[in-house]
């Protein structure tokens, strides 16, 4: 019962991923893409755990999910860092 629920949720979740991917692929700006990728990352984390349930080996998948979350963060940070550093000294923050 619960297994079916989780399987269905996993399928649904993977279907939902189409939308962030649409944003990542079509997104008018680069930052939209960042956002889409970040959202994919978050959903993937959940999905990984669900796959763990489907395989009945959750403990094995948690590590992946955790590592995934960590590196997703790093990647997004690095990408946004590009814009942080691209401007020189002349243009400082407004606030």
């Amino acid at each position: 019962m619960m297994d079916t629920l989780i399987l269905l949720s996993a399928i649904l979740l993977s279907l939902f991923m189409i939308i962030p991917l649409y944003r990542a692929v079509m997104g008018p700006t680069v930052l939209d893409r960042f956002m889409g990728v970040n959202a994919i990352g978050t959903q993937t984390t959940a999905l990984l755990i669900m796959i763990g349930f489907i395989y009945k080996r959750v403990d094995m998948f948690i590590d992946i999910a955790l590592a995934y979350a960590m590196l997703n963060f790093i990647a997004v940070l690095a990408a946004s860092r590009y814009f942080h550093k691209r401007k020189g000294l002349t243009e400082e923050m407004e606030s």
Binding site: S14, V37, I40, T44, L48, I51, I64, Y68, L71, N72
Partner: peptide
């Protein structure tokens, strides 16, 4: 960035196919 997304999805794919170590590495 899209290459990153591609890798995310691949990671998921490996996990789906039960290749946990590969998924971990890909992640």
């Amino acid at each position: 960035v899209l290459l990153g997304a591609y890798s995310f999805l691949l990671c998921l794919l490996w996990a789906v196919m039960g290749a946990v170590d590969v998924a971990f590495t890909e992640a």
